[in-house]
Design a protein around this nucleic acid. Structure first.
Length: 273
DNA sequence: CCTCTATGGCGAA
DNA sequence: TCGCCCTAGAGGC
């Protein structure tokens, strides 16, 4: 589920698996042969994420830039001494060491960038609530002057990076905000609350691998000991719950396609006025 | 088994 | 605005 939490978890796992190693890099599918040749045998420094963009940095200053899009998958597996299995299906990139195997499929972006090009990609992204260096003022400055709907603004990666359709629907429900309200009428206190909530919720997604937005599940992840994985069911307040009762007020959940994406909200407790 | 759908965004038209 | 990427889970038959 590639919203920002997925990409940050991938960066963490790629760093664990490959930092300090020199993986063999190939493109069994054949669509990344030249890029793979540039990276093959080079030493990995670390991986990082900004919003939904993933960067695997090598010590020669080249970076593998990946964006999963809707259907992309980046699978990382410990080999535990076993020989790596042969690639199956359309594997765009394969990274292999004696200990780890990573395979990328279906990504919308997969390229090799130099540091300047990485900076250009990053500069087009808004603040990411998962990053310590994020400045929410940059997002607010654009939101509070905009006539576009808050639903649209939350999904605009140049304004706010990492939030996708599930987090936006859920966070608007948590703050009782109508998705079609224009950004310019959003109160400063509402934005502060949204940002603080995202700073709280997104790390729970990184930790559990699941988008966690319901208070009982939030508590379950926050109270779990250690930093390891927590098993959490995929349950949402409004996302994909069209016609079902709101968990807060019992009114029917409504849906509408806006800018090509499905929007879900409670018609009663998320009022437009 | 097959068909539909999606947490995203690029590039052609 | 639409097709595509070509995955993977859900649901229908």
């Amino acid at each position: 589920m590639p919203e920002g939490h997925t990409i940050h978890a991938l960066a963490r796992d790629l760093t664990t698996a490959f930092a300090g190693t020199r993986p063999s890099v190939s493109s069994p599918q054949g669509r990344f042969v030249e890029g793979a040749a540039l990276l093959d045998g080079q030493e990995v420094e670390a991986a990082s994420a900004w919003g939904k963009h993933l960067f695997l940095d090598f010590t020669d200053e080249r970076s593998l830039h990946v964006h999963l899009g809707l259907i992309g998958k980046f699978e990382i597996a410990a080999l535990d001494g076993a020989p790596a299995p042969a690639p199956v299906g359309a594997v765009r990139v394969r990274l292999e060491t004696p200990d780890w195997l990573a395979q990328l499929r279906g990504a919308i972006i997969c390229t090799v960038l130099d540091p300047e090009e990485v900076a250009t990609v990053v500069s087009a992204q808004g603040p990411d609530p998962l990053r310590d260096d994020a400045d929410p003022e940059l997002a607010w400055a654009r939101i509070h002057r905009s006539g576009r709907t808050i639903a649209e603004l939350l999904m605009d990666q140049s304004i706010l990076a990492g939030v996708g359709n599930v987090y936006r629907c859920e966070v608007l429900w948590r703050h009782r905000l109508h998705p079609l309200k224009p950004g310019r009428v959003l109160k400063r206190s509402s934005w502060d609350a949204i940002w603080a909530d995202l700073v709280r919720l997104l790390p729970l997604g990184v930790r559990s691998g699941v988008i966690v937005t319901l208070d009982d599940l939030v508590a379950r992840v926050e109270d779990a000991p250690g930093a390891g994985g927590v098993v959490v069911p995929r349950r949402y307040a409004v996302y994909k719950r069209t016609g079902e009762p709101c968990l807060r007020c019992g009114a029917r959940i409504r849906t509408r396609v806006v800018a090509g994406r499905n929007l879900f909200w409670c018609g009663n407790c998320q009022r437009r006025t």
